[in-house]
Amino acid sequence: MIVLKNAKARTAIRFIVPLALFPAVAAASAIAGGRAYVAGASVCALLAVLVFLAGFEQKKIGSRRLIITTVFVALSVAGRFLPLFKPVTALTMIAGIYLGRESGFAAGAFSALISDFYFGFGPWTPFQMLTWGLIGYIAGALGEKLKNSTPRQIVFGVISGLMFSALMDVWATLDFTGGFTAQTYLAALVNSLPFTALYAVSNAVFILLMSRPFGEKLTRIKIKYGI
């Protein structure tokens, strides 16, 4: 079992890894080029995921919250079969807002892992887990600020949709061309623009339509079962 005893160390690592280490590796690969950084970035992503999961393992959330997190993961994966909408980002965000950051991270990261269980694992799996996990984590950290404001949620959804695309493009560029240059990355971004745009719009629409009903449902459950 991975458990970091010191809470301060945990928090420090949890913020340093995604906010400093990750951009550093990306920058290094942008400057130096080369394939070593693909592996470096993958390993970093994996470590970051593990550190976050240690936080999840430590957090006392009880059986009901654990199951609700599980339900969100399952809904995200099942929702990937919906036409037009890919509700993963929205669901992860809602999980983060209502269940807290640790559960938000777990909801996002495991949605990625379970999807890949159906669609195939790859070196991108840690990347996806980290990216979606972070979306959940940040939504959880913003918590109350997002909870009662649909416009803010939409902004968050669109930004995280863009962030997801941008990060996954980093991976695509790294893997496809072996080195990371601003030029190829830009090309990849431009290429994926239609998808990114569609993704951002569908996120916004999904949140617009679903976030209130979801909130109502969760509130109802909270009242009915006294969680």
Partner: peptide, 21 residues
């Protein structure tokens, strides 16, 4: 082996996905 809570979550999710479908 790494995190029992995560394992439980994965197992539950794998059970719920076909159920939801």
């Amino acid at each position: 082996k790494v995190s029992p809570k995560s394992a439980l979550l994965i197992s539950g999710a794998l059970r719920f996905v076909p159920l939801l479908g």
